[in-house]
Structure formats: structure tokens, C-alpha cells
Design a binder for these strands. Sequence first.
DNA 1: GTCTATAAAGGGATAGAC
DNA 2: GTCTATCCCTTTATAGAC
Lengths: 206, 206
Amino acid sequence: MSPRTSEKFKEIRDVRQHQLKDAAIELFGMKGFAATKISEITNKAELSHGLFYHYFKSKEELYVTVLVELLETMIEMIDEAEEQSESPLKQLEWLTDVTHSAPLRDGVYRHILIMQALYSDYLPVETKENIVERYRLMVIRISQIIERGQLTGDFIEGEPEELAIYHLSLVHGLLLSNARKMVPIELSVDKVLRQLKRHEARGEDA
Amino acid sequence: MSPRTSEKFKEIRDVRQHQLKDAAIELFGMKGFAATKISEITNKAELSHGLFYHYFKSKEELYVTVLVELLETMIEMIDEAEEQSESPLKQLEWLTDVTHSAPLRDGVYRHILIMQALYSDYLPVETKENIVERYRLMVIRISQIIERGQLTGDFIEGEPEELAIYHLSLVHGLLLSNARKMVPIELSVDKVLRQLKRHEARGEDA
DNA sequence: GTCTATAAAGGGATAGAC
DNA sequence: GTCTATCCCTTTATAGAC
């Protein structure tokens, strides 16, 4: 087969894999790993049930693939945040904003998925380790931003890693609340950072 | 059968139901509804697979039962919080504290379970409505505490219901982080309330 | 690469004995 | 009330034709 054809094949494979992964993110995020059926994934991705197994060895393989990629993306976003500005405060603002808005369509599910994977335990220990490892890295990276922000006087005092946990917890918690819009509220970067920002003088509220 | 015997029977039923519900809270909370097998529940509760169906019509019935009871308990805790003190700040402090510590053993799973139920969608709409309804009540009750706390000057300004969401989001997010102790931190009521409390003068931090 | 049909497995739910 | 054995449906995964 000519290089041209094999290239074409590869392209098709990539597209199909993408369709499946996108469908999976939303479904896994919405219903969890166990409750999501292969047929639902292939329906959403608009291909046949059988074809699934030409692209992934099993449901679990797809799950892990998606998960690892998501975590990688999130860490890349931290890199990007740090390129946006010199100010740690601005960096965290950018990151918080992008977390809530940029992943427009199924962005929320990305985070839910990661949280699910972190606190549930249906996956093999080594896989779990892998995920936790990457999540830890994320926490550390954010705590480093906070630490620098403390030096500039933008953020309150306290153990940076602990503050990072509080920050991430709030962000994730809000994403969950909003995901199911049982109590829909307008997310605000300023309000999310309320617990982190140092409060100078007064009259800044309202 | 004598009243004495029927009473004894009822007692056994109650004990069994309790065993099953306790086991279910932990397992559902840990793995989710779909991933939890009846056999796992009965194993943990130390009775046979078949006996399960003498106590609950189905897995879903157990799930809903547990969920509704948990939400009821949480609302009762708010009642209790309001009896503890006249001060809204003290009330919320008490509630936050009890949320993290009182439900000692599997307390964490109670909250995770509720969150799962809220944002996932494997249960019938009417059941879901029921759950959401009760959760909304919780949010309202907390926002009322916050509203009163604004009048006393303990809490910052802002839409009370929105502040309640931020508060609950943080609490839930922290519970999740801690549940899997990937990044174990010491939860602190003061730090949780940092985003809500009005900051008088300065020098209070550190 | 893609599909339909089918096999294989897993787990919820029931039957019936004790 | 409790257990073991079994049914049966759902869903994962494979086979084989196009």
C-alpha cells in the first residue's frame, strides 16, 4: 500500500478514536464508569458496537486512556497559565476562569470524571496510582503559584499546599453543583478566589 | 403468634435492615450505584445473597431508601445547629464541624453518596426530583443562616443563596479530597469559613 | 474499516428447601 | 428468617461476512 493510503487510514483511525473518546468523556462523567454501556458510547459516537473493539481493547482501556489524557491537558493548562502573566494572582485567575468556561461543551464532565476516578476504586491499583500521581503533580504546581503569590502579597498566609487543596476543592465542588444545575449560579472568578486573596484595606466588597 | 414473638421478629428485621443500609452507604459511596453488587453488600452485611430480597425489593429501592434517610439526617443536623447557639456564625461553625467529624466512621461516604446521586442520572426522574427537592431545602436553610449572619455582621455581603452554594461546594469538595486521602490534610472549620467570614481590622491571619 | 450476529460472562432477581 | 441453587436478562467481547 502506498504511503498516501496508509496515511489516510491513520487519519480515519484518529478521527474514530476521537469520536469515541469525546463520547466517553461525557458519558463516563455523567453516569460513571460502571453505568456507562459500550453501546451508549458507540451510539453517541455514531458507529457500530462491534467497531468499538477495533479501537480499544476494552471499556477499561478507553477509560484509562481518557483519564490520563485529561490530566495531561489540565497540567498543560497550568503551563499555559504561567505564560499568561508574571503575576501569580493573574495566573490563578486565568486558570480558574478557563476551568469554568473554556472547556465549554463537555468541560464540566472532564473534571467530574477525574474526581470520580480519584475517589472511587473500581480500577486496578497501579492505574489508580498513576492517576493519583498526576493529580498530586497538579496540586503541587498550583501550590507553587500560591507560594509565589504569597511573596507578592496577593494571597493570604498559610501552608501553600493546603491552600491549593482548598482552592481545588472549591472549584471542583462548584463544578459539580453546576453540572446538574440543581442550583444554577453564575460562577465568578473573583468569588472563587475570595478565600485566597489577601484583603487589603476595606470597601472592596459588595 | 404471641405479641412477644412478633416483636422479636420486628427487631430482627430492623437489625438486618440496618446492617444492609450501613454496608450500602459505604459501598455505594465508594463505588457508585451501578458498580456496587448485591453480593458485595450482603457480604459486608454478613448475610446471604438471597436474603437481601426479603428486606428490599431491589437494589434501587435500597439506594433510594438510604439516600432519603441521609438527606433527612442532614436537615435534622441543621435544626440541631440552630439549637446550639443564637449566633449564626456559631451555628455554621457547629454544622461545619459536625459534617467533618461527627459522622466518624463512614460519614464521608454519606456526603459522597448524596453528591453522586445529585449529579449522576441513573435514577428515575421522580426519584431524582425528590432528592433534588431535599437538597434544595438544605441550601435554603443554610442560606438563611448566612442571611442572619450578615445582619449580625459576621458574614460578608452578597446573595445568601449564592454564598451557601460556595460554602457547600467547598465542604463537599474537601470531603472528596479527604475521602481518598490522596492529599490528606487536617480539616479546619476556621479555614473552611474563611471565604464567608467578614474580615474586621487586620492581624487576624497567620 | 465497518457492520451484523453470536458467544460468553456477570450479576440482579426468584424458587424452594430448611 | 435464612440459605443454596438457578433462572434470565443485560452487557461485554468475539467471529465472520462485506
